[in-house]
């Protein structure tokens, strides 16, 4: 059951900031700074955090849509970050992505049929009639009618486009799908449809998900394990039930208390964080959360960077004071 499908080791992704006439590199955005985690086959790992925490960059780098600055991404026993050419294209079949924006994620000049068939044809899974038949099956599976395959993306609503994006990802029979804010742009009623669909597909095809989102409630609903990120680092990672019933990192606690809950009679203790998320160009020294942390200890937190350590079985936290 607990077969590791993907192993991320010390992954770093820095983006250069260039300036001046000669486009010299003047600084680095440390979007992902030394992140490690594993994913088991068939599970959903939630990756949650606020804007600029690097969650999307992690997803993109795992898929080699960004080149990693350092570190390894092991799929089986292959290091994805070292694959080239044909080997890399083969690997891409196994890992797919679903994007946030249902508008920019589909080529406006291609028919739905061709959008979904692109992967089928690229990987020589089928051709012509047979490919078309597969597209029809996929459309049915994601809850759309096969009659619609000759239409263009603009003829569909946001939720329907998201279904098309899911069908495109499924077309190559992937083992792992990165869902990058896959329901964030959708209305609540549509969001529930898509979440249910993703859950059904996971069961049917034994898929593994990396579910990236800023919405803690959505992540809680769909994930088996959850990793909380802050400024390019994982601050806490644990089983979902454990994390939500017993959050240990002060940032996780603050994040949970900040989510408004649709129950006016529920009275909660709210931890209000001071200030804004600092820039990842020049992150704070020591623990990156210390300037906003309600319990920070000036003696240690601003000086030493905490390690991600296992405080309970399978519950990792990176905080000096836990």
């Amino acid at each position: 059951m607990n077969e590791i499908i993907l192993e991320v080791k010390n992954l770093k992704k820095y983006f250069p900031i260039r300036a001046g006439v000669f486009r010299r590199i003047v600084a680095w955005v440390k979007a992902v700074d030394d992140v490690s985690f594993n994913i088991n086959r068939g599970e959903t790992l939630g990756l949650v955090g606020e804007s600029g925490c690097g969650k999307t960059t992690v997803g993109m780098t795992i898929l080699r849509l960004y080149e990693p600055t350092a570190g390894q991404v092991l799929y089986g026993n292959k290091d994805i970050s070292k694959l080239r050419g044909k080997e890399l294209r083969e690997m891409r079949r196994k890992m797919q992505i679903i994007f946030q924006d249902p508008y920019s994620s589909l080529n406006p000049r291609m028919r739905i049929k061709n959008i979904i068939a692109e992967g089928i044809i690229t990987h020589d899974i089928a051709k012509g009639r047979e490919a078309e038949h597969m597209v029809a099956e996929l459309l049915k599976r994601v809850g759309l009618s096969p009659d619609q395959m000759n239409r263009f993306p603009h003829e569909f609503s946001g939720g329907q486009r998201q279904r098309i994006g899911i069908a495109r990802a499924l077309a190559v029979n992937p083992e792992l799908i990165v869902c990058d804010e896959a329901v964030s742009a959708l209305d609540v009623s549509i969001q529930a449809q898509i979440l249910n669909l993703l859950e059904d597909l996971q069961k049917d095809f034994n898929l593994t998900y990396i579910f990236i989102s800023h919405a803690l409630n959505v992540v809680k609903h769909i994930s088996d394990r959850v990793a909380v990120m802050y400024l390019g680092k994982i601050v806490e990672i644990a089983d979902k039930k454990e994390l939500f019933s017993n959050p240990l990192h002060p940032y996780t606690k603050a994040l949970m208390s900040a989510i408004p809950i649709p129950d006016p009679e529920l009275k909660r203790e709210r931890i209000l964080l001071k200030g804004d998320v600092p820039s990842p160009i020049n992150p704070p020294s020591g623990c990156r959360f210390h300037p906003r942390c309600p319990i920070a200890d000036p003696k240690i937190c601003s000086r030493e960077e905490p390690e991600l350590r296992e405080v309970k079985p399978d519950h990792f936290v990176s905080c000096h004071l836990v």
Binding site: R92, D101, M110, E118
Partner: peptide, 22 residues
């Protein structure tokens, strides 16, 4: 920068085809 170009890349489509089709 459009996501459909990234999606095609993630599907393993060759660069030349991405330029031609997308």
């Amino acid at each position: 920068e459009e996501q459909y170009v990234l999606a095609a890349k993630a599907l393993g489509v060759r660069d030349s085809l991405i330029i031609l089709k997308h």
